[in-house]
Amino acid sequence: MDNPKNNPKLPTDSGEKAEPKVIQRWSAARKREIVLRFLRGESLDAVSREIGVEVYRLERWRDKALAALDAGLKERSDDDPLQAGLDAAHKRVGELSMEVELLRAKIGRLEAGTPFPRARSRR
C-alpha cells in the first residue's frame, strides 16, 4: 500500500519522519500565568521559545488581557454614590426632555389653531 504524500503522520519518500502536528489547548488560567510573566518583565521571545507558542499569539493574549484590565478598572460598583447621582440625573433629563416635547406639540397646536380632541365624559 502506497503512503499518500500529504499525510503528515506517515513517513515521506525521502526517508525522514514527519512529526504529527501537536494541537495544544490553552486554558484561561494558563494564558493568565503567561501574561503575568510578561508583566513581571520576562522576555517575550524567551517565553515563546520555552512554551512553544508563536510571538504574535502571545502578543495577542497580552493585548486582550490589558484591554480587559482597563475595562475592569473603568467599571463602577453598584453602591457608588457618584454613579447613583449620575443615574438620577440621567433619569431627570429624560423626564424633562419628554415634558419639553409634549409642551412644544401643545404650543404648535395652539399657534396653528388646531382644536384639541374632546375628552370623553367619565359618566
Rank of each mutant, 00 (worst) to 15 (best):
P81L: 02
V47R: 00
T114N: 03
R37H: 06
A29W: 06
E95M: 04
R76K: 03
P115R: 03
D78T: 05
A112R: 11
R120D: 06
F38W: 11
A67I: 03
P81M: 02
L36N: 10
K9A: 11
G52N: 12
K21N: 07
L58R: 00
S48R: 00
D2S: 14
K31C: 07
R120K: 08
P11I: 13
D80A: 02
D78K: 04
Q83A: 10
R104G: 02
R92E: 12
V47T: 15
R92W: 07
D2G: 13
S48F: 00
G15P: 01
E54C: 09
E54N: 14
R92K: 08
D63A: 10
R123A: 05
L82Y: 08
R57N: 09
A46F: 05
L73R: 08
R104I: 01
K9Q: 11
G15D: 10
M98Y: 08
A105R: 13
A68R: 05
L103F: 04
F38V: 06
K17Q: 09
G52W: 10
D79N: 04
R57L: 10
L103V: 08
V53W: 00
E101L: 05
E50G: 01
E111A: 02
A65W: 01
A29P: 00
Q83F: 09
D2F: 14
P115V: 02
K17H: 05
P8Y: 15
L44E: 12
R62L: 08
K31F: 01
D78S: 07
A71C: 02
S121W: 01
P11C: 13
L96D: 07
G72W: 00
V93K: 12
H90M: 14
L82H: 11
A89G: 08
G72P: 00
R122T: 03
V35P: 00
